[in-house]
Simulated scan of single mutants.
Amino acid sequence: MEYEGQICRPPMEKSSFMLATAVGCAYNQCKFCNLFKHLNYRLLPLEQIEAELRHVRAVGGNPKQVFLGDGNAFGMETSRLLCILEKIYHYFPNCQMVNMDATVTDIRNKTDKELYQLKKAGVGHLYLGIESGIDDVLIFMRKDHNIEQAYREIQRMKDAELLYDAHIMTGIAGMGRGIENAEKLAEFFNHTQPERIINFSLFLSRSVALYQDISAGRFIPANEVENLEEARRLLELIGEKPVLYDGFHDKLEFRVWGELPKDRQKMLKKLDSAIETYSRKEPMIAYTH
């Protein structure tokens, strides 16, 4: 299947078979995101999805894990999701779980019964774009939720035994607020206890709405040392429940990953080294084209 747009999936899904089920993101309003701005959101025909499954099986494919694309596959109507799940498990009998991105609103729009149905039908991990632990930052960035809503909907999905993973972005609170954001996120995660945390440190595209705020002085970006310090404070404060963390600072070509709390000291040491190195250089801000 030809994939329209940019392929975007969590690093933990790199060995999953990625099955396109839609084009773009149904929400597509976050100020910082440029992944889907050029796309008109639409669902792919079920016939096209099934043809891809049939083709992959015909060439010997039988993946143990499937990741549904595009931006927020969990937002589809439950009846459609259940139909896709049934087809996946029919064509791939060895499949153990089907994972996908979701928004807090996607969960809110499903009843408790639907969440249980989807879990029973084979949904495993849901990756939620939490991004920040501060309400005014979420409002400014046009996220679809506030912290109270995130607490409530994550508890509902966990009651249904769906697996909760979190996307965050160091730097999203702007200059001077990284430590505050880290401490609020740590508090949030210590209560909600995700299985995985993925940090795609904020990159600043000139093509998105946030750049207009930067030009007008309404948002002052943090530099990359601040972002590293924010990540360090977060890892320092996350509690004792095991959680996988994978943090990307693409401007620096720097990555820190491991399992907390087991690898905490090793990860902090790596961040300390990077902070020391880049503190001696000219401040860098993660602009991209």
Score class of each variant (00 low, 15 high):
Leu185Pro: 01
Ala186Pro: 10
Ala186Asp: 05
Phe188Asn: 10
Asn190Phe: 05
Asn190Val: 04
Asn190Leu: 05
His191Ile: 07
His191Val: 04
Thr192Asn: 02
Thr192His: 02
Thr192Lys: 01
Gln193Phe: 03
Glu195Lys: 15
Glu195Asn: 10
Arg196His: 10
Ile197Lys: 14
Asn199Lys: 05
Asn199Ile: 03
Phe200Thr: 08
Leu202Val: 06
Leu202Pro: 06
Phe203Ser: 10
Phe203Cys: 07
Leu204Arg: 06
Ala209Ser: 13
Leu210Pro: 01
Tyr211Gln: 10
Asp213Arg: 13
Asp213Thr: 12
Ser215Ala: 15
Ser215His: 10
Ser215Tyr: 07
Ser215Pro: 00
Ala216Arg: 13
Ala216Trp: 02
Gly217Pro: 07
Gly217Asp: 14
Gly217Asn: 10
Arg218Lys: 13
Arg218Trp: 06
Phe219Pro: 06
Pro221Ala: 06
Ala222Arg: 00
Ala222Trp: 00
Glu224Thr: 12
Val225Lys: 02
Val225Leu: 10
Glu226Phe: 02
Glu226Trp: 05
Leu228Gly: 13
Leu228Ile: 14
Glu229Tyr: 05
Glu229Cys: 13
Ala231Leu: 15
Ala231Ser: 14
Arg233Trp: 07
Arg233His: 07
Leu234Ser: 12
Leu234Pro: 11
Leu235Pro: 11
Glu236Phe: 10
Ile238Ala: 11
Gly239Phe: 04
Gly239Arg: 11
Lys241Met: 09
Lys241Arg: 14
Val243Met: 11
Leu244Gly: 15
Leu244Arg: 14
Tyr245Ala: 15
Gly247Ser: 15
Gly247Tyr: 07
Phe248Pro: 08
Asp250Tyr: 04
Asp250Cys: 08
Lys251His: 08
Leu252Met: 12
Phe254Glu: 11
Phe254Thr: 12
Arg255His: 15
Val256Lys: 00
Val256Tyr: 00
Gly258Leu: 10
Glu259Val: 15
Pro261Asp: 07
Pro261Lys: 13
Pro261Gln: 09
Asp263Met: 05
Gln265Ile: 00
Lys266Ala: 04
Met267His: 00
Leu268Arg: 02
Leu268Thr: 01
Lys269Tyr: 01
Lys270Leu: 00
Leu271Pro: 01
Asp272Lys: 01
Ala274Tyr: 01
Ala274Cys: 03
Ile275Glu: 05
Glu276Ile: 10
Glu276Lys: 13
Glu276Ala: 13
Tyr278Leu: 11
Tyr278Glu: 14
Tyr278Ala: 11
Tyr278Pro: 03
Tyr278Val: 12
Tyr278Ser: 15
Ser279Met: 09
Ser279Pro: 06
Ser279Ala: 14
